[in-house]
Amino acid sequence: MTTRIAVDVQSLSKRYGDTIAAADVSFEVRQGEIFGVLGPNGAGKTTVIECLATLRRPDRGRVRVLGLDPQRDARALRPRIGVQLQSAALQERIKLWEALDLFASFYRRARDWRALLTQLGLAESADIPFGRLSGGQKQRAFIGLALINQPEVVFLDELTTSLDPHARHAIWNLVQEIREQGVTVFLTTHVMEEAERLCDRVAILSRGRIVALDSPQHLVRVFGVGCRISFSAPEPFDVRDLAAVAGVDRVERVGERVIVQGRSDGLVADIVGSLTAMGVRCMDLRAEQATLEDVFIELTGETLRETRTEEECEALRS
C-alpha cells in the first residue's frame, strides 16, 4: 500500500526585498498525518503556509497541494482545503452563527454549522458578535470556519498563540479529533509542547531553512542531548570519576550541584551505582529527558524567541 502525498513542496524559495523568508524548503506531507513546521517568529513559517494556502506565489520551487498548484489551480483547490490564518479577522459585528452560515454558503459540500458549533463547544456563543468573543473562542471559531467545507487538508497557522494553557489544551484535543476524521493537518507553531504533543512529524525551520525533519521522538533521540541528571553532593568528590561511566558525555559541577549529561538508556542506574560504589551521598537527584527545545537549540543555536530583528519581521508581514 502506498501512502498518498497531500502536500508536496520542492525547493520553495521566497524573499521580500533583502529578507529571505524561505530558502530552498522541501518536504512532503502524507495524507492523514499531522505535520508541523516549528520555528521562532520570523523563521518563515507563515510564508510557507501562505504559499500552500493559495495566498502567495513562491519566487521559486514547486508546490503541490492535493496534486494541485495553489497558484494556477487556486479555484479548484480552495474548495478542498481549510485555512486558519494568523492575521485574519471577521466582521466585528457578525454573529458567530452568521459567520459559519455565511462561510458554509461558499461551498458545495458544507457541513451543518449547528453540529460544528456544538463540536467546537461554541453552541452557547452562537449569537455573540465576533468582536466580543474571547481569544480562545475566536480561535475555535476560525478552526470551525476552516472545517466547514469538510476539507481534505487543513492549514493552521500558529493556532494557539496568545491562548492560556486551558484554551490551548482544548484546541489540541480539537486538532486530534480533526485528524481522527481522516483530515490531513498542516500546522505551524513556535510552541515546543504543541509540536511534541500533536505532530507526527516536525520540520524545524530556522531563518527560512529546514534544519531537521522527523518525528519529534526521533529528533530528540538523534539530536537531543539525551538525558540530563542533576543532584546535590554535600561532600566533595572528583566529578571526573563519573565521566568514566559508559554513556556519559559531560559532567560539571555548578555550585553544590553536579550535572551529568549522557545518552545511554540505563544512565540513571549506572550513575547511582557509581556514586554508591564511590561512597558519595547524593541528594535531590533529578533526571530529565531532552526535549524538542534542546534539539532546537542544538540545531540552530537559537532559542525560540525572535531570531530576526523587528524591522525584518515587519518586512515579512507587509
Binding site: A53, T54, L55, R78, I81, L85, A88, Y107
Partner: peptide, 16 residues
Amino acid sequence: GYREQGVLRRLHVTPL
C-alpha cells in the same frame, strides 16, 4: 477596514 482587519484575507482563501 476589512482589508486592515484581515476580513478580506480570510475571504480570499474561500472559493468566493
